[in-house]
C-alpha cells in the first residue's frame, strides 16, 4: 500500500512522529542517522513531497539512542572521551577529553607529579583514579621512578631537597657541591663510582595552596569523568537542554 507524504495537504497521511521545529516541517527520524522512518517504508507516490531532515551541525553530535551501552561505558573508563567516540559522537568526545584531561594534567602542571600519590594522599587518589588507567600509570611512575627508598624505614618517600635518587637501588644520595660549586651526587655501579653533576632531587614536593589546587584539579577531573562514564553507559539519562 502506497503511503502519501505531503506537506501541501496538511494532515494527509501525516507520519506519527511529525514535528514542526523552527517553522520548518520535518520528520524526527530514529537515531538521527539520516535514514527514512521505518513506518514510511513502501512505494511513494510520484507527486509526493518527501521532506527529509535538514543536515545540521547537530546531526553529527546528537543521538537519540536508548538503553544501556556497555561497550561505550568500558571505553569511557579506559580513556576520557572514548565512550562517546564509540557512540559516534566525536564532538562530544573531544570536548569531554579536553575538559577532563585539561583538569588532570593542569593539576599535575600546577602541583607537579607530587599531586598524584596513592600512598601519601590516598583519599584524594580515590577521586583521581576515576580518570582511569592514566591516573594509575602516573602514580606508578611517581612511586617507582621518582621516590626514594628510606634506608631506615624501608619505605618509599619523596626525596628531600638536598637528596638525589640513586638510579641503581632508588636509595637517597646526599647532594654536595664540588669545588666549582656544582651540586653533585655520587653512587656506585658495578664497583665503579659514578658522579651525577649537576645533581638534583628527582622531583620537588609541592606545598601549601599550589599542592592543594593541583590535587583538587586532578580529583575534579576524576569526579567529572564519573559523570561522563555514566552518560556513556546510560545515554537516555541525559536531560534535554540542561
Amino acid at each position: 500500500m502506497a503511503r502519501y507524504i505531503t506537506a501541501r495537504a496538511a494532515g494527509v497521511n501525516r507520519p506519527p512522529a511529525t514535528i514542526f521545529a523552527g517553522g520548518v516541517k520535518r520528520f524526527r527520524l530514529p537515531r538521527d542517522r539520516g535514514h527514512p522512518p521505518a513506518n514510511n517504508a513502501g512505494p511513494i507516490a510520484p507527486d509526493a513531497i518527501l521532506i527529509l531532515p535538514r543536515r545540521t551541525r547537530m546531526d553529527t553530535t546528537h543521538t537519540n539512542q536508548t538503553g544501556f551501552d556497555p561497550l561505550a561505558g568500558v571505553a569511557a573508563v579506559i580513556f576520557p572521551g572514548a565512550g562517546h567516540l564509540v557512540r559516534r559522537e566525536p564532538r562530544r568526545a573531544a570536548l569531554v577529553a579536553i575538559g577532563v584531561l585539561g583538569l588532570f594534567f593542569g593539576g599535575i602542571l600546577v602541583g607537579g607529579i607530587d599531586v598524584i600519590d596513592s600512598r601519601e594522599d590516598r583519599v584524594w587518589f580515590f577521586g583521581q583514579a576515576l580518570v582511569g588507567p592514566l591516573a594509575f600509570g602516573i602514580d606508578y611512575a611517581h612511586q617507582h621512578h621518582f621516590k626514594v627508598i628510606d634506608l631506615q624505614k624501608r619505605q618509599l618517600r619523596t626525596a628531600l631537597p638536598d637528596e638525589a635518587r640513586n638510579p641503581v637501588d632508588a636509595s637517597p644520595l646526599p647532594i654536595r657541591p664540588d669545588p666549582a660549586g656544582v651540586p653533585t651526587a655520587t653512587y656506585t655501579r658495578d664497583g665503579k663510582a659514578v658522579t651525577m653533576a649537576p645533581a638534583r632531587p628527582p622531583n620537588i614536593k609541592s606545598l601549601s595552596k599550589v599542592n592543594e589546587l593541583g590535587t583538587l584539579m586532578a580529583t575534579l577531573a576524576g569526579m567529572l569523568n564519573l559523570i561522563i562514564v555514566i552518560d556513556a553507559l546510560f545515554p537516555t539519562l541525559r536531560r534535554e537542554n540542561a
Partner: peptide
Amino acid sequence: LVSIAYKAVRVS
C-alpha cells in the same frame, strides 16, 4: 575546564 566537560555531556 569543569564547564567544558560538564556541558559536553549535558547539552543536546
